Measured scan of single mutants.
Amino acid sequence: MSIQHFRVALIPFFAAFCLPVFAHPETLVKVKDAEDQLGARVGYIELDLNSGKILESFRPEERFPMMSTFKVLLCGAVLSRVDAGQEQLGRRIHYSQNDLVEYSPVTEKHLTDGMTVRELCSAAITMSDNTAANLLLTTIGGPKELTAFLHNMGDHVTRLDRWEPELNEAIPNDERDTTMPAAMATTLRKLLTGELLTLASRQQLIDWMEADKVAGPLLRSALPAGWFIADKSGAGERGSRGIIAALGPDGKPSRIVVIYTTGSQATMDERNRQIAEIGASLIKHW
């Protein structure tokens, strides 16, 4: 067993022997301040990774656009098919120029040779490549099948209805392509620590998230040296922004954090800054 596999296998073990965790309302004060600064709703939840206990939450059962955070769930569904012998990570998928959609920095470079399922998941999570996500959605049967996968996990809230990039439209009061912070946090925890996926697939999923290259201005910008984070960000229309993450000190994750916002007129930089400040408060009061 590799060191990384050992780390993920012992996530519940280490967490069980940690000192009790206590909620700190100071972080919620910052979440509410972010709402004021952005002029928009902000949803927040913080779960203990081992027990699933909610440590703090704000608007945990209000719907927010998922945006690209759905790509972690998508690759979880792909990995479940791999575990069941219905898919192979090494299978190569070929596609054409007509398949390319807006923001496809990886797939646009491989029109000639195609990409493997493993490479597509890596591109979808680490670079948020939209064509990679659409190609992977095709392998599982489309958005409705991802929703069905989530329902089978016990998540009857999260739903995907459309493809990239239309799913980022974020129309107010439109339930399409949305989740709730509580539902997303619980589902992410199941994917990373539950028995739904094999140990190898859980490790692969967290490795992809740990290698995320496009979430630097968010929670990662607030992390002290030595902290662990595996995350996936999302951005959408109407001032929408979000991030889902597993993080913790001492090089291992111990909490799940989900943050979503929508309806702001603020710039992307300002949305990023507010999420980073929430992260800084979380870490300060850990």
Rank of each mutant, 00 (worst) to 15 (best):
P25S: 11
E26C: 13
L28I: 09
L28P: 05
V29C: 15
V29N: 10
K30F: 06
V31C: 06
V31N: 00
A34P: 02
Q37Y: 06
L38G: 08
A40R: 03
V42I: 07
V42G: 00
V42L: 12
G43N: 00
G43R: 00
Y44K: 00
I45W: 03
I45R: 04
L47M: 10
D48K: 03
D48H: 06
D48I: 04
L49S: 12
G52S: 13
K53T: 11
K53G: 14
K53H: 12
F58V: 15
R59C: 04
R59T: 03
R59D: 03
P60Q: 14
P60M: 13
E61A: 11
E62F: 06
F64I: 02
M67G: 12
S68W: 01
T69R: 00
T69K: 00
L73F: 06
C75W: 03
C75V: 14
G76Q: 02
G76Y: 05
A77G: 07
L79F: 04
L79R: 00
R81M: 06
Q86G: 11
Q86W: 14
R92G: 10
Y95T: 04
Y95D: 02
Q97N: 11
N98D: 07
L100S: 04
V101C: 10
V101R: 07
V101Y: 10
V101W: 05
Y103D: 04
S104A: 07
V106A: 15
V106G: 15
E108R: 15
K109Y: 10
T112G: 13
D113A: 08
V117P: 04
L120K: 00
C121H: 01
A123R: 01
A124T: 14
I125R: 01
S128A: 01
S128R: 02
A133G: 11
N134T: 04
L135W: 03
T138I: 14
G141Y: 06
P143I: 06
K144L: 11
A148T: 09
L150T: 14
N152R: 12
D155C: 02
V157L: 08
T158G: 05
R162Q: 12
L167P: 02
L167Y: 01
E169S: 08
A170N: 07
P172F: 10
P172Q: 06
E175K: 14
D177V: 01
A182V: 09
A183F: 14
A185C: 10
A185F: 01
T186M: 14
T187N: 06
T187K: 03
T187Q: 05
L191Y: 08
L196G: 10
L196A: 09
L196E: 06
T198N: 10
A200T: 13
Q204P: 03
E210F: 12
A211S: 07
K213S: 05
V214K: 07
G216V: 14
G216W: 07
P217A: 13
L218F: 03
L219R: 03
A225I: 09
A225S: 10
A225V: 11
G226I: 02
G226K: 07
W227V: 00
W227F: 06
F228G: 05
F228M: 05
I229Y: 03
S233V: 01
E237V: 11
G239I: 00
G239K: 00
G242T: 01
I244H: 01
I244L: 13
A246F: 09
A246G: 13
P249I: 11
P249R: 11
D250R: 07
D250G: 06
R255N: 02
I256V: 14
V257Q: 02
V258P: 00
Y260R: 00
Y260I: 05
T261V: 14
G263A: 09
S264G: 13
A266F: 11
M268N: 14
E270R: 07
R273K: 14
E277F: 06
E277D: 05
G279T: 14
A280M: 14
S281H: 09
